[in-house]
Design a protein around this nucleic acid. Structure first.
Lengths: 331, 331
DNA sequence: TTGAAAGCGGTACCAG
DNA sequence: CTGGTACCGCTTTCAA
């Protein structure tokens, strides 16, 4: 049963005596084809091992049933887990997913967008780099349906699904402040990233509400790619900064910090009070415990639903902001 | 600068006065087009914001410059990291990557293969479920270039890149045996999976070489999807099994086991001797340390190179097995 | 060096 | 209910 050449509609048409057209419609179960015909065609299609050429289909119909997901780095479990959720939801609606990594770099982000457009994806889910807003404007000009995830632009109206990061930052810092800490090291992401700015704002708010002054030297901004946490903490430890607790930009950064601190304490497994974000331990079990901020909602699913809705509605769609509520979780 | 409709070659042709054909070849920098013409065409293409329709291109040329990666679960950092490496290598050669998750389920694996075929991917990198060999035979019949990663079939000749898992198992068990442990719990993957079978073989070999008897009740086979480690250890702890050390199927399972054991000891962070596989800490820092088996080679890169070679060579390609040497790494 | 024409494999649209 | 035909946008081949 060698299947060297691709089986096409024509092969089925030849074998059954119907036209390509009829075969095409029969296989799509259009109701204007008689039950008998449909069955015959389906059967021979099965026998021949027919698999539709989606490139051809896409070309004519303009629909690829494919969405692109563009994120910083898929090997980051936060994105990995998000992506997995997206794939699951997308699959349920018959969509396939292409992935692009930006490494938090605008140029690669642009390449990804171009490539996705070139492949005629039906829509894009993007966690934007946010160094500038060029790429977003580009997406808008191309009029490809897209949804931002995890980050948003204050000045541009787009669909977006993101966490309430001001509240997140406030919860994190507040938790530690309420334990009596007043020197809380804050290691956060760049301020051009909305979550970076918002979480820091939350950190400040928490202090203000408790009338505790924020010490600016406790605030450290860093890259959010892998290894960044290590670098910062390494530097900080050279400064003799009197911090007694830490708010880390993500659980991953928190782990990096604990790794680094481990080198400076006798017992590697006694760690200082630290709070992270993303609650990665809910997805990947890990035997080191600290509180983490997260939402109860399924961001991935919400993204996909929103995107599909947007794809359906087309131009008439009005931008929707879905802000996910967050809470502090003790695993 | 509204770019509503897609810009096509025709638009450029109309604007420059050349034919579609000439435009196409000019944009591909074929040398049978005069420098002048090329420049004019490139310039107007830029002005109009032309982006090639790869669906159309693929249809005619048969090449999509896309590969599919099919793995168990991308949210597993092992696969996430592998995938990332694949994407990096593929990108360098101008390839895009589609991803499919099988959840270690043959049926989904088949769907993934069909979908990839339908999208006319140029090649596939697959970590096979191995419940049976139907899907591999399917791939061979479809004559899509593919490379297996992490697992191989003893009875079927295919291209494959995988770790020396017998040695891996031997190193892991040997390390613990040499520390004086004689009751080493082995928590491994299903035996139909090559790495599951091979690592267990290695565990046995290590005992044999040291003339230490293997106690069969120390051998536990489990699923390898998330949470499986927890289940097994939970059950084992009800049995009062006198193990003093553990060989875990992967670092992820090791972490799960440490989580579970944490519930039964006073100090959560004092853990029993355990050895894992994959050395996930090399990619993602975690402040819990134990030895892990891994290779020095870049599996992802090797996979991509092999696949691209196979794509180029076509039918003439002879299957290649790349067995990666492994070692025990103390982070 | 450039142009004309024939497809790639489907789908949309209209006719019968 | 089924067939005919144009056509999606690009690449290939051959001719000029």
């Amino acid at each position: 049963m060698a299947v060297k050449k691709r089986v096409t509609l024509k092969d089925i048409a030849d074998k059954t005596g119907y036209t390509i057209n009829t075969v095409s419609r029969a296989l799509k179960d259009k109701k204007d084809i008689s039950r008998e015909t449909r069955e015959v065609i389906h059967k021979t299609a099965g026998q021949l091992g027919y698999i539709m050429d989606s490139a051809a289909s896409a070309m004519r119909s303009g629909k690829t049933k494919t969405i692109a997901v563009i994120v910083g780095d898929i090997s980051n479990p936060f994105f990995g887990s998000l992506f997995r959720g997206i794939e699951l939801s997308a699959r349920k609606s018959g969509f396939t997913v292409i992935i692009y990594n930006t490494d938090e770099n605008s140029e690669w982000e642009q390449n990804a967008i171009f490539s996705a457009y070139s492949k005629r994806v039906d829509g894009i889910i993007l966690c934007p780099v946010q160094e500038n807003s060029e790429n977003i404007k580009l997406l808008q000009r191309m009029s490809v349906p897209f949804v931002l995830v995890g980050r948003y632009f204050k000045k541009i109206k787009t669909d977006a699904v993101f966490w309430n990061d001001v509240k997140a930052g406030e919860l994190a810092a507040g938790y530690l402040l309420d334990q009596g800490h007043v020197n809380i090291l804050y290691i956060g992401g760049p301020l051009h990233i909305s979550s970076g700015a918002d979480r820091l704002q939350g950190y400040r708010n928490a202090h203000k509400k408790r009338e505790i002054p924020v010490k600016e030297e406790m605030i450290r901004i860093t890259r959010i790619t892998a290894g960044a946490g290590l670098e910062v903490i390494d530097q900080i430890l050279g400064e003799d900064l009197p911090f007694t607790a830490v708010v880390a930009f993500s659980d991953l950064v928190a782990y990096e910090i604990l790794c680094a601190l481990g080198n400076y304490t006798k017992d590697k497994y006694t760690h200082i009070p630290i709070v992270g974000f993303d609650n990665i331990r809910e997805k990947i079990m890990f035997p080191v415990y600290f509180p983490s901020i997260d939402s109860r909602e399924n961001a991935a699913k919400i993204c996909v639903e929103l995107l599909l809705k947007k794809i359906q509605e087309g131009e008439s769609h009005k931008p929707v902001l879905r802000i996910l509520d967050v809470e502090l979780k003790h695993t």
